[in-house]
């Protein structure tokens, strides 16, 4: 048996820990995080495997939810466009679906990252590990749902490509879909880290986040494209950083005009949030066990 006796433990690189007030520097934080990558994997795996235990339809729910909501918003879109009568059902449905599935991924990653810390108070008060792996692992666990949801999206896209004279023209841009996934994940985690860290102390944070997310779905070009907004208001609407992200997703899936300016706004916002979220998290991480 592969018993680690103290003797051969001593031969391994001696590990020195210094405990003092004040946190670790960025470098040692990163090397710390690497030492805990197995735990990261286990937490990720736990979140996934627990997900649909004791449900009858399991994975089916991942497929049904976006289809239902996309159907609902298609209906709304058709009703709003009743007078012009230019929009066709299947086309609108596919475009809405292309917004709903990525948005669901984004908003779930965000809310999971944010609520995971308070949900893990038993761990935080009893064991040490870099706290950042909790929100990261929970957010990442949403990828599985997303991947399954995207299978549906792709199926509909192929169907949509054969629709005559539709606005659905998937092409080479689909190669850029992955970078948008990465971008939205980084943005979700950055905001999630910030709200999650605040939420450890003040539970109000997640309440606010809930409102923001449900408003965000209607305000962020999820089920309507930016092109539907009158030209003179577009820039104003695109100041909402989520608009650029959603436009980017939609562009990579169904084609159209590249949303350069909205995307720049998103990128700038992501960068700011990334630094702010990470820094704030690291600053307050040390007191989590005391205040959670």
């Amino acid at each position: 048996m592969d018993q680690l006796t103290p003797k051969n433990l001593h031969n391994s690189v001696s590990q020195k820990t210094e405990i003092k007030p004040g946190g670790l520097g960025l470098l040692s934080t990163l090397s710390e995080a690497r030492r805990y990558k197995e735990l990261f994997f286990f937490l990720f795996w736990r979140d996934i495997s627990v997900r649909y235990k004791q449900t009858i339809f399991g994975v089916l729910w991942i497929i049904v939810t976006p289809l239902m909501s996309a159907g609902l918003f298609t209906l709304i879109r058709l009703m709003l466009g009743r007078d012009t009568g230019t929009e066709k059902g299947p086309e609108v449905f596919i475009i809405v679906l292309c917004g709903m599935v990525p948005w669901a991924f984004f908003s779930k990653s965000l809310s999971r990252a944010s609520s995971s810390l308070t949900g893990s108070s038993a761990l935080i008060t009893k064991v040490y590990f870099p706290r950042i792996i909790i929100p990261l692992a929970s957010a990442l666990a949403g990828l599985v749902d997303f991947a399954i949801g995207m299978l549906i999206v792709i199926a509909f896209l192929i169907y949509g490509a054969f629709l005559p004279a539709s606005g659905i023209n998937p092409g080479w841009q689909i190669l850029l879909f992955a970078p948008f996934v990465v971008l939205s994940f980084i943005l979700a985690v950055s905001i999630g880290l910030f709200f999650g860290a605040v939420n450890v102390r003040y539970r109000d944070a997640n309440v606010i986040l809930g409102y923001l997310m449900s408003m965000g779905m209607h305000a962020s070009a999820v089920w309507w494209p930016l092109a539907k907004i009158p030209e003179k208001y577009r820039l104003l609407v695109a100041c909402n950083p989520f608009v650029g992200m959603m436009e980017g997703f939609r562009w990579s899936l169904v084609g159209g005009k590249f949303p350069a300016i909205p995307l720049l706004i998103t990128l700038a916002f992501t960068l700011v949030m990334m630094v702010a979220g990470y820094k704030y998290f690291m600053k307050v991480e040390r007191t989590f066990a005391d205040v959670i």
Binding site: Q15, T17, K20, P21, G22, G23, V127, A289
Partner: peptide, 20 residues
């Protein structure tokens, strides 16, 4: 809790050599 790094001390320090 301080020695296992769950919470941090307000003052003073500790040094640990080895896997904890």
């Amino acid at each position: 809790k301080i020695l296992s790094r769950i919470t941090e001390p307000t003052k003073g320090r500790a040094e640990i050599n080895g896997r904890v």
